[in-house]
Amino acid sequence: MPLVKNGQISDDPFVHVADGAELPADGAILIPAARFLEDPETLLRRAGKTGVVWPNNRDIDDLVPYLDRLAAVALVFPSFRDGRAYSQARLLRERHRYRGELRATGQVLRDQFVFMLRAGFDTFEVKKESDAEAFAATAKRYSVFYQPTGDGRITALNRRMQLRHSESAGQ
């Protein structure tokens, strides 16, 4: 499964460690939420980077105490029709000021990239190779946005206000 990070197909430094699988001594790992919460302090002290795979039906408030020490948070799209992780992503970025890697995992398809970027995701485990290759072009598909989110893109309403001001300043 190709990984897109910073807009490009990249090697994935993280290894997914399943429930029950042995924990590597070092190296970057992504670990299921339940396993992480069993002993977060030990995990956060290990030599390699630690990230958490957070299910979309669990309150992210449980994750908040650890955010500044996590190397990555992966949010899950069990189906491309299930949009709960968009809310989790915005809350992590906009309310809890999470600045680390925010990864989309699961059914991640081309036609969701723009929504995911706007919600604050910066890393994508893309299901199809062709979609990963189309990432850069797809991300540029829209130039106008109606809603404010934490991604900093200016909304249409604000652009209009700016245009008005510059018009009246020029008069």
């Binding site: 029709r81 949009g83 929504f115 995911m116 946005f145 309403l157």
Partner: peptide
């Protein structure tokens, strides 16, 4: 209408 159009959080309710 503008607020709900292509909303990045609420397009998969």
């Amino acid at each position: 209408r503008q607020y709900t159009t292509l909303h990045p959080e609420f397009s998969f309710l």
